[in-house]
Design a protein around this nucleic acid. Sequence first.
DNA 1: TCTGGGGTCCTAGGACCC
DNA 2: TCTGGGGTCCTAGGACCC
Length: 396
Amino acid sequence: MSRRILLVDCDQFFVQCARLADPDGAGREELLLVGGSPSGRGVVTSASYGTRAFGVRSGMPTAQALRLCPAARVVPVPRGLCGRKSRDVRAVLERFTPVVEPASIDEAYMDMTGTEALYREPLEATAQRIRSAVLDDAAISVSIGGGASRLVAKLAAGSAKPAGVRIVEPGAEIDFMRALRLSDIPGVGPVFAAHLERMGLSTVEAALAVNEVALCQMLGRTRGRWLYRRVRGIDGGVVRPDLRSRSLSREETFPLDIDDDAALETELLALASRVAADLREHDVRARTITVKLRDADFRTRRASRTLRTGVESDRAVVATARVLLRRLRAARRSAARLLGIAASGLDGSDFGDQLALFDDDVVESVRDRQLSRVTDQLRKRFGASAIRTGRLLDRS
DNA sequence: TCTGGGGTCCTAGGACCC
DNA sequence: TCTGGGGTCCTAGGACCC
């Protein structure tokens, strides 16, 4: 039996949250842009439907959006409320099935296979009840798509927007896909779409006419097979609840580019401390630390290092990141517009003695961990400014 | 007023092991 | 002295998504 999957997608999620956060201000504003940045280098995170009529899209530089729609009001993302609303929505969804997989802050997949017998109603009716329940109990409007695969559910949700439900019945997948462009398929971004276009393929209809062998000859075996299945609405994806994240990161684009090494190290210290605090909050340790630099000319460079054992303390993360930053700076001197730090290899098991990767490997002591945990406690009780990170860390 | 911040997955080469 | 593959891990970069 084929699977019955729903994708629940919040309508203009950040706009809805901004309106809930300020009902009398943003709540009354039809032309609303959420995002931007005090630095003036921001982009639109979410644009209200009113502004989209002017050509505004999310991801667009705020300055450009305001040129298209000068009457729009710009408000910051209400981060805390967005997180709470996201959890509220998920809690409602979990009343309908335990198999809920959040795909991002504003969408989640649900595996509803078998629930038609359980609820004694078509999937369409259940989806309508889910929509109403989320609106009533979380005050968030969602659109819901349904189908035999994650791919079809996702695309159906797109066609249901805003505030609608669209279920693609089993067997109707190809006819549903036929109306789409290849660039509508998740995973076909601007680069791949342009490549396909050069080969004369821009619509799903056109790709359906090419057999699998020919597609593989055109695109290579992996991508040929991948596209052959996608245009037929097929993906191998399973809905998996309780997915743990594979990496944690923090990054910052500076209001003005920074070329001074000492100033960059100060920023590094702040970012690395935040990453380390995030690791402890999630109760994980990271074996790999990556530092990312974006130069003034927008070229992005990275350097990473995998340690023998996972780390979670401020000192170990900072010490590792500092070496990587110096290496990047030595390789190319340019003012930096962005600095970022990522932690991955989370909870990776210790590599033991199989390989002594580096003689100068950063090692984290029990004392380092205790010190960071105590700092966390103090910050929790007395506020973030209770402890100045720099003093505690400068042992390297 | 050019281009945010948080992620996932894939590829490709080299090191190293069996 | 010459000649292999296969598998895994690490690193760097890039496409892509919301």
